[in-house]
């Protein structure tokens, strides 16, 4: 039966089967990458790092020029806020001291919001922007581990998805990956916890789901990480509530957040290592 045995058709079908199997394989939440993947990523990471230097020098020049144009206005604004700053600074110092004293009285040393930072530069980004991933130039050798939080000066941008010895991949909060979840809480008199999952591409809002229906949420409240997830420290700013909707079944609410950071213009990031190790982590299953 030579006519049924079309070689090309069989090759195509085999290809599709392999495709589906591979997608299924990579959709699982993997803790570590296989060594060929690590090797590829490391090698290209090295070249990308070298390539990035001249490119960022040129773009940096253009950005500096456009920054210069706004300098006068910014300066006037900043001067006006300087007085405010001194006052807040003294207040913060007093509060910090009081906090430390009270902790000593309570004999409580652990603090979920304590962390040590690791600075890193972005050397690449997933060009097909469905799964929003960026590559940074620090890896396992610098102490980076899977699931650590990643922030910029403005607030949270994502978490470490995978690591190789010299690079790491950050999954942005705005990524559409269904496994991409971050536990957060809304800061107000009666704090409300929820989970950040999903992103509205058109409006640029993050979706915070599973907030109990009886919580009253003030528009404009700040949203922070709650530190309940396991490896994230608490009190990293995520965004601001702009809209609240009740889910279809009426049991939960969904808040729409305006992100504190820009997910588009990312150049330098800080990887955050929490000082208090979660219970799960201590048992050796660092899964969120």
């Amino acid at each position: 039966m030579p006519q049924f045995f079309n070689k090309k058709l069989i090759l195509l079908l085999a290809g599709i089967i392999v495709l589906v199997a591979l997608i299924g394989f990579s959709m699982r939440e993997r803790e570590t990458l296989s060594w060929p993947e690590q090797f590829f990523k490391d090698t290209t990471g090295w070249f990308a790092n070298a390539f990035d230097k001249p490119v960022s020098a040129v773009t940096g020049l253009f950005e500096n020029l456009s920054d210069l144009q706004n300098t006068y206005d910014e300066n006037a604004k900043l001067k006006a806020r300087l007085g405010e700053y001194v006052q807040i600074k003294t207040e913060v110092q007093a509060l910090k001291k009081e906090n430390a004293d009270l902790r000593k009285i309570l004999d409580k040393e652990d603090d979920l919001s304590k962390y040590s930072p690791i600075q890193a530069t972005v050397i690449g980004r997933n060009p097909d922007r469905w799964n929003e991933l960026i590559t940074i130039n620090k890896g396992e050798m610098n102490g980076i581990e899977t699931n650590m939080a990643v922030i910029t000066a403005d607030g949270l941008i994502g978490k470490i998805k995978s690591t190789t010895p010299t690079t790491a991949t950050v999954q942005l909060v705005s990524s559409g990956d269904p496994n991409n979840k971050i536990s957060a809480s809304i800061v107000q008199q009666d704090a409300a916890n929820g989970i950040i999952e999903g992103y509205d591409d058109k409006q640029g809002y993050l979706l915070m789901k599973r907030i109990p229906f009886d919580k009253e949420i003030k528009i404009g409240s700040i949203v922070e990480t709650s530190g309940l997830g396991g490896v994230f420290p608490s009190r990293l700013i995520v965004g601001k509530v702009v809209e609240v909707k009740v889910d279809q079944n009426g049991l939960n609410q969904t808040a729409y957040l305006e992100p504190a950071t820009d997910f588009y213009d990312i150049k330098n990031v800080i990887v955050v290592k929490r000082e208090v190790v979660g219970d799960e982590e201590a048992k050796g299953e660092g899964k969120e």
Binding site: G15, L19, L22, P36, F40, K41, T44, D128, W130, L133
Partner: peptide, 20 residues
């Protein structure tokens, strides 16, 4: 293959589409 491994972290899509 390189695209899938290094960039998207979802194996298979580009490895299959580009030669096809």
């Amino acid at each position: 293959i390189m695209y899938d491994v290094v960039y998207t972290e979802i194996l298979g899509i580009y490895m299959f589409m580009l030669p096809f």
